[in-house]
Simulated assay, not measured.
Amino acid sequence: MNPRRDYQLGLLYVTISAVAWSLAGYFTRLIPLDSFTLLAWRGIFGAASLLIVVVLFRGRHWWREFAGIGKPELAYIALTVAGMIMFITSLGHTSVAHGAVIYATIPFLAAFLGWIFLKEYPSRSAMISSIFAVLGVILMVGFGSDGGLLGDLLAFGMTCCMACSIVLMRRNPEMSAMASACIGAIISGAICWPLGAPLDVTGIQLFQLALFGLTNSAVGLAFFALGSKKLPAVETALIGALDAPMAPLWVWLAFNEKPDLNTIIGGGMVFAAVIAHIVASQRRAVPAHA
């Protein structure tokens, strides 16, 4: 495939995954259940939808995705389980805006890990955009009043898990990422099942939980896995940071959970940084080496 075309597909796939993941806060606020019940059903429906994706991609040989599980896949499963639990739990202790924009620190984390483990040196525009995005996070977390320390720490833990996942997939492009995510989803659901009240949900809530699992897991993880193999780690993280300004927007529109001014400004800085980097990347002669 043409390197430029491959790079553009990577941008598209990771952007789609960011949009899908940005809806997590919306579903968390929409479904009035405790975190463990949400995680239990999200894990089950997420695993089922990911299994369907694997079958669609691999056809009759879908089972080989699971038969080929090795050390990279086991590491990815552990990161998926930890990230899922910390992310959903964080939303019960901080605002959606804080949780989303803290995720914008991921470009720095991914750039550092990519430099250490992959010898990928971030482009100047990627680093400038990352610094600008993190300044937005500092403004929001340091001066915003709509978050909570425990929730913020959990959100940062989830961000660390995602940064490690990006580098892991970049380093092992042939790994069975979707099969691993499927296993991770069912494990997280099994862990949380006895800690919540999953049998007390209504029919409407069950339908909403199914949409949550489909959107957040099948769409989000599938496109993330496809896109992260085509982009440098820091760029995957930077485009994924679009989650930050979009997540509080959906909650604001649907539930009137208004972020304060510093949160709005910080989220705007993240969005501007990502757009500026995409424009700069498209102007380079050989974007595949960005």
Score class of each variant (00 low, 15 high):
residue 284 R to C: 10
residue 208 Q to N: 15
residue 146 D to S: 03
residue 95 S to I: 04
residue 12 L to G: 04
residue 222 A to W: 11
residue 70 G to L: 10
residue 150 L to V: 09
residue 246 M to C: 05
residue 122 P to Y: 04
residue 214 L to N: 06
residue 45 F to P: 02
residue 270 V to P: 10
residue 262 N to L: 10
residue 69 I to G: 02
residue 174 E to G: 15
residue 73 E to P: 06
residue 38 L to R: 12
residue 166 I to M: 12
residue 77 I to D: 00
residue 90 S to T: 02
residue 280 A to D: 04
residue 14 V to R: 05
residue 15 T to F: 14
residue 217 S to M: 09
residue 51 L to Q: 05
residue 286 V to E: 13
residue 254 A to E: 03
residue 39 L to N: 01
residue 213 G to Y: 02
residue 124 R to F: 13
residue 207 F to A: 14
residue 110 A to M: 12
residue 105 T to W: 13
residue 148 G to K: 01
residue 202 T to W: 06
residue 17 S to V: 09
residue 23 L to W: 12
residue 159 T to L: 14
residue 199 L to I: 11
residue 106 I to M: 14
residue 236 T to N: 14
residue 124 R to S: 09
residue 125 S to P: 10
residue 25 G to H: 04
residue 205 Q to H: 11
residue 177 A to L: 07
residue 113 L to E: 07
residue 5 R to T: 05
residue 218 A to C: 08
residue 166 I to R: 13
residue 147 G to N: 02
residue 166 I to Q: 10
residue 203 G to V: 08
residue 134 V to F: 15
residue 184 G to T: 01
residue 71 K to Q: 14
residue 193 W to S: 08
residue 12 L to A: 13
residue 22 S to G: 06
residue 223 F to E: 02
residue 256 N to I: 01
residue 283 R to Y: 01
residue 260 D to W: 02
residue 226 L to F: 14
residue 5 R to P: 00
residue 216 N to Y: 02
residue 244 A to E: 10
residue 25 G to A: 06
residue 27 F to C: 12
residue 245 P to V: 05
residue 101 V to D: 07
residue 194 P to F: 00
residue 5 R to A: 05
residue 147 G to I: 02
residue 85 I to T: 05
residue 221 L to F: 14
residue 171 R to K: 15
residue 199 L to G: 12
